[in-house]
């Protein structure tokens, strides 16, 4: 009970680009700027998957990115949740069935929250992160 409350108050996010066009990445960066101020919810962007609670994945998961994505997911300490950011990560979008594409993301690792949009707005990304935090606190 207490553990769930604490997990909700301090959310460290690691951002992984699995072959995105950088549109979603720019919007993720925007959601951490002073205008949207993710830090007021205790959300922090960290530089190492070993510190992270939430994994933000953008892009349709290319074959090049696949082994790295698996490794990053394994490096994250439990409990952990995954957020798919953007249409590409959610469903592969226009890249579906492409020769270099191994995705979509949820066929590779379990995805907890989907944030649609091409690219999604920063408000939506923040909402996705907070929903992920809710899921995190319910996880055992």
């Amino acid at each position: 009970m207490l553990r769930g409350k604490i997990l909700k108050r301090s959310i460290w996010v690691y951002h992984f680009n699995a072959g995105a066009c950088n549109g979603c990445d720019i919007e993720i960066t925007a959601s951490f700027t002073p205008r949207f101020d993710a830090e007021r919810f205790g959300v922090k962007l960290v530089g190492s998957p070993r510190h992270a609670d939430v994994l933000l994945v953008t892009g349709p998961v290319t074959r090049q990115a696949l082994p790295r994505l698996k490794r990053v997911y394994e490096m994250m300490p439990d409990p952990k949740v995954v957020v798919a950011v953007g249409t590409c990560a959610c469903s592969c979008g226009i890249f579906k069935g492409g020769p270099g594409v191994a995705g979509p993301l949820d066929s590779i690792i379990p995805v907890d929250v989907y944030v649609f949009g091409c690219p999604p707005r920063p408000q939506n990304i923040l909402k996705g992160i907070l929903e992920a935090a809710q899921k995190l606190s319910e996880k055992r």
Binding site: I6, W12, D53, M75, P77, P79
Partner: peptide
């Protein structure tokens, strides 16, 4: 303090 408590509850990798 919240960050500290959260880190204590997580499993190390």
């Amino acid at each position: 303090f919240y960050d500290f408590l959260k880190l204590l509850t997580k499993n190390a990798s």
